[in-house]
């Protein structure tokens, strides 16, 4: 009875990713069988400046997205922890971005950032500031893409942290308050400890999902101008579907896979411990 589920996973996830790791040791393009070349593909991408730029861009985006979302998500969770009127409604509306497809999300933000006439740029010009030029500036474009990614995924992070914050026993907070702990101390020594597991899960999942970022950047700049804003998944997409260098693409894919595995290792280890060793 688990066979249908497991075969779906085997055919579409497990086998293809094993094949990618195998392919990364081979030269391959259309109309030509794979030839074993050892580390050649890795040497090729390591010699490519575009690859290193994509790696750096990915790391930058991951950091912005993960920290940004954690801070905002935690702030919101604490803000809504105490009872208030209309809380159910507020939470429902905070979840709204989760329902929006990336193309529409990008349309919204690009419209607000249109040169001269977009809402945000109008406001900046009105305040006598410079407007945001995302089309030509590498770091500005990456920042905007990260911002949209944060907007899109904050509901996920917020929900995980909010469910954790609501499990903190009130008596514990009150006891700490009676003992004279200030709000910041109560947070650091009580709340933070209780929500730590959820916090780690949020960090893990958001890191893993940020490493694979594609749509936000693709829909903003397609990795341009001159490949300056490419991330790993766009580098991989170009290698596969534009240059048909399947070997380089597979090497990039394997590196992405390893990156995710390294991040997920502590989690996977605990999971293995709980599920298999103590079964």
């Amino acid at each position: 009875m688990v066979t249908p589920a497991l075969s779906l996973l085997a055919v579409f996830l497990l086998l293809p990713s094993v094949y990618v790791a195998w392919l990364s040791g081979h030269a391959s393009t259309y109309g030509q069988g794979a030839v074993f070349v050892g580390w050649q593909n890795y040497a090729t991408i390591f010699a490519d400046r575009a690859f290193w730029r994509a790696l750096v861009n990915t790391v930058v985006v991951v950091h912005i997205v993960v920290y940004g979302e954690l801070l905002l998500g935690l702030g919101l969770a604490l803000l809504l922890a105490a009872p208030m009127r209309g809380k159910g409604m507020v939470i429902a509306l905070l979840l709204a971005p989760y329902a929006i497809t990336e193309a529409s999300a990008m349309a919204m933000w690009r419209a607000m950032l249109e040169p001269d006439v977009g809402l945000i740029n109008q406001a900046l010009l009105g305040l006598g500031l410079e407007q945001i030029e995302w089309a030509t500036e590498r770091w500005t474009a990456l920042l905007i893409a990260s911002l949209v990614a944060i907007w899109h995924h904050l509901p996920f992070t917020f929900l995980i942290l909010y469910s954790a914050v609501t499990t903190v026993p009130r008596e514990l907070i009150e006891a700490a308050a009676i003992d004279g702990a200030r709000p910041w101390q109560r947070f650091r020594h009580v709340t933070l400890w209780v929500i730590m597991p959820a916090l780690l899960v949020a960090v893990l999942f958001r890191t893993i999902f940020a490493v694979r970022i594609f749509s936000e950047i693709w829909l903003l700049t397609e990795g341009g101008p001159a490949r300056l804003t490419e991330v790993l998944s766009i580098y991989l997409y170009r290698a596969t579907f534009k240059y048909h260098e399947f070997g380089s693409a597979a090497a990039t894919g394997t590196i992405m896979l390893l990156l995710c595995m390294v991040v997920a290792l502590p989690y996977l280890w605990r999971l293995y411990d709980r599920l298999v060793r103590h079964a």
Binding site: L6, L13, V20, L23, I208, F246, C260, L275, V276
Partner: peptide, 26 residues
């Protein structure tokens, strides 16, 4: 043990970046 092992594989596969499977699948 075997069943739990498959559960582990199932959950571990969630870490996989989806775009990499387009290389062989295409």
């Amino acid at each position: 043990r075997v069943l739990q092992g498959t559960a582990f594989v199932m959950l571990a596969l969630r870490m996989l970046p989806p775009i990499i499977i387009t290389i062989p699948l295409f």
